[in-house]
Design a protein around this nucleic acid. Structure first.
Lengths: 191, 191
DNA sequence: GTCTATATACGGATAGAC
DNA sequence: GTCTATCCGTATATAGAC
């Protein structure tokens, strides 16, 4: 997980993995058929650990569902900051690096995105009353993911937190406006 | 440009380039010092051609500055659709693929993003009156880029246009809400 | 199940004739 | 400026002893 997140999939050699894990080639190939097998295992670990490794720590002590959105995004911000904007979302990096992913790889990438989106969608659904009636919470949850991934991409490229921060600020403003028009129904509804 | 867009940088071998260009190794290395030299030339070509190759075709026959936003995004949608969601934004792909870009590469990546953002920002500025007074148009323009890149990433991963389409729909809704509160100043301003 | 040694292929890059 | 031939490192993966 560490190597793929930091160096990417292609740039991580089997030799790198052996060295980091302090094992030898024979051991690795006893447990995994190919390098892609290692990738699949890593993606499964992310998928299975998303709640315990990512969501739970991010939401500890945060009860309001909408505040939980920002708490989760804050988590990514911290990772960016800690690494001087070198690493953001490991799943997103792999998703774009692997241009023609074999079906099992793609399935695991989407499974990761789906689970992430599930948690966000749940936040919206439990606060559905705060939003306009016709709000599509699935779409909105995916939009949070979109904003995070896009913001991470730009921040990694610029090596500055600005892009990520301003993306989150715009998203907050959007969510805030949605809540305002729900309280104060004025005219047009969501598309 | 074609190969890096389709296969990525690492996965494109010099041999691939030679075959596609129908030249031999000696010729290529007479004009470029290394493979990275080819990448730099490609990124320069994107940067220098952004107006003629991307913006001008997208905005042909579209006069309203805000409509131009959607026309540009539509351009990316077409590319996704044509390639069955395999290729989206070549700059974004390269930005995430190259984890530790050498300074010259990073400079050219950001130059590409900057120019893109410039065109969008200009759209907002010429319609400044439609938006709340304190709107940060640079931030908003970057947010359009963020949304596009994030949407492209998700659509490429899912191999479906849904993620891209819903991201654009949410963005449209946001821009629309901003214009509504500008016309109908109610309460809170932008952060 | 882990070790060492190695097969085999392909990568980027170079040499030197023309 | 382009050609052919090739160097040399490193990549993934395997073989077979222990």
């Amino acid at each position: 997980m560490k190597l793929f997140a930091e160096k990417g999939y292609d740039s991580t050699s089997i030799a790198d993995i052996l060295q980091a894990a302090k094992v030898n080639s024979g051991s690795l190939y006893h447990h995994f058929d190919t390098k892609q097998g290692v990738l699949l295992a890593v993606l499964e670990a992310y998928r299975d650990g998303i709640e315990s490794m990512l969501i739970a720590p991010a939401w500890k002590g945060v009860d309001d569902p909408i505040e939980r959105l920002w708490a989760l995004l804050e988590r990514y911000r911290q990772l960016l900051k800690m690494t001087e904007c070198a690493y953001g979302c490991p799943i997103g990096s792999l998703a774009l690096e692997i241009h023609e992913p074999d079906p099992p790889v793609r399935t695991l990438l989407t499974a990761n995105f789906d689970r992430w989106t599930d948690f966000i969608e749940e936040c919206f659904k439990t606060t559905a009353k705060r939003f306009p009636k016709k709000t599509d919470f699935r779409s909105l949850a995916r939009f949070v993911l979109t904003t995070m991934e896009g913001g991470v991409m730009l921040s990694r490229t610029y090596r500055t937190l600005d892009a990520f921060d301003s993306a989150v600020a715009e998203l907050k403003n959007y969510i805030s406006l949605l809540q305002q028009i729900a309280m104060n129904p004025k005219r047009k509804k969501r598309s």
